[in-house]
């Protein structure tokens, strides 16, 4: 990723593309887009990765999180014809972080893999809710309607899922 950002290295970008394109393809297809449409969205996403690589800040987010953010925004733009407002750190009104905590950031990087493990261990009904939210862009209340569940039930299941993830990450950090 650094090679892409600093040296505009096309080989490094090709490696990144080979790794992420099949996953992005699956992500785009989750909302039911046809193959060629999905490829277009994958390309739009990766083109943005190329153009914005210099602004990628590994202290703030892992590569997969950063690519998820770009892919999500592309999807919202294209499927719902919605704009996606973005926070701008150069905004005069922007309130910066009180102290850039190096420890937190190190943990964020280390925990990416742990997070994946924790997600795989979630009970099915909790994982399903997260999939509906992240893959189908449904709000918590839309999920309630789709599943015929009261909003309160959806919210409490989601809260359980998030607490479980948090606990798992804490334990993983204590043992490392």
């Amino acid at each position: 990723m650094r090679a892409v950002g600093e040296r505009r290295d096309r080989d490094a970008f090709a490696t990144l593309f080979r790794h992420f394109a099949p996953r992005l393809q699956a992500f785009m297809r989750r909302l039911g887009s046809a193959d060629d449409q999905a490829e277009e969205l994958v390309q739009e996403t990766m083109l943005m990765v190329w153009r914005r690589a210099e602004s990628f800040d590994p202290a703030r987010a892992g590569v997969r999180t950063w690519i998820y953010q770009i892919a999500r925004n592309k999807r919202i733009d294209s499927f719902r014809r919605r704009g996606r407002p973005e926070v701008d750190v150069n905004d005069p009104a922007f309130v910066p972080d009180p102290e850039p905590s190096a420890v937190d950031r190190l943990e964020a990087e280390q925990s990416a893999e742990q997070l994946r493990v924790a997600l795989q261990a979630l009970p099915r009904e909790q994982a399903d809710l997260l999939h509906m939210a992240y893959f189908e862009h449904r709000s918590q209340s839309e999920i309630g309607v789709a599943l015929g569940l009261p909003l309160g039930t959806v919210k409490s299941r989601t809260r359980l899922a998030l607490e479980r993830l948090r606990r798992h990450l804490q334990q993983a950090n204590e043992h490392s």
């Binding site: 090709a14 998820y68 997260l130």
Partner: peptide, 27 residues
Amino acid sequence: DAIGGALLADLPREQVAEGALDRMLAR
């Protein structure tokens, strides 16, 4: 967002059309 990143990373990989990388590099 990191949860989104982890979910994305864990999706079963899908076949990318032939020549997709070349088309990408050309852009």
